[in-house]
């Protein structure tokens, strides 16, 4: 990471987009279950970040800050009238094709994650996929660490059950 350029420079912002675009895009994709909306959400996330770069005080990590903006942006999208009105049933074929054919086990686990209630899906993505700590997740979702833990435990049960059914859980 090149921090020679200050946070208000285009170079700093370009580096930030380069570092976090992929993980935010995947996060939004799973939260929204829609690749096109995810693209918009990521763009909106970076636009908000760019406009408030001066307010970023390093009291949380850059990654936590950006993830919080992305989660909030997805939440706003989900509760818009448009999102509520249209059919949001998951159609896995509507999501981008993987570069290589995925294992059936991966597909099953992926579908299970997509079908988790959104609050559990959020913590699964942040904890298991983004490797965030309970405290970081607590900061992002604005809930207590014990609530993060509770949501995570519910999600764990669902995921383990799925893996057991698929014979992946030894």
């Amino acid at each position: 990471m090149d921090d020679v350029k200050g946070p208000d420079t285009p170079e700093y912002f370009e580096r930030m987009v380069s570092d976090y675009q992929t993980q935010l895009r995947r996060l939004c994709c799973v939260l929204l279950k829609d690749a096109h909306l995810a693209e918009d959400a990521v763009q909106e996330t970076f636009l908000k970040a760019y406009r408030s770069m001066g307010e970023f005080r390093n009291d949380s990590s850059e990654r936590t800050w950006l993830t919080r903006i992305a989660v909030n942006t997805c939440r706003d999208l989900v509760r818009s009238r448009w999102f509520r009105h249209i059919d949001r049933s998951v159609k896995i074929e509507d999501l981008p094709e993987p570069e290589a054919p995925a294992d059936p086990e991966d597909t099953g686990l992926y579908e299970t994650i997509l079908q988790l209630p959104v609050k559990q899906r959020e913590v699964v993505l942040l904890y298991f996929y983004q490797n965030m700590t309970m405290q970081e997740i607590s900061d992002i979702l604005r809930i207590s660490a014990s609530n993060v833990s509770r949501r995570l435990e519910s999600a764990r049960k669902t995921l383990r059950k799925k893996l057991e059914e698929d014979g992946m859980h030894e």
Partner: peptide, 16 residues
Amino acid sequence: LRAKVQKALDDKLSGV
């Protein structure tokens, strides 16, 4: 569990 979740999501989202 983390390893399995990461593999599943990375594989399925590699087209993003």
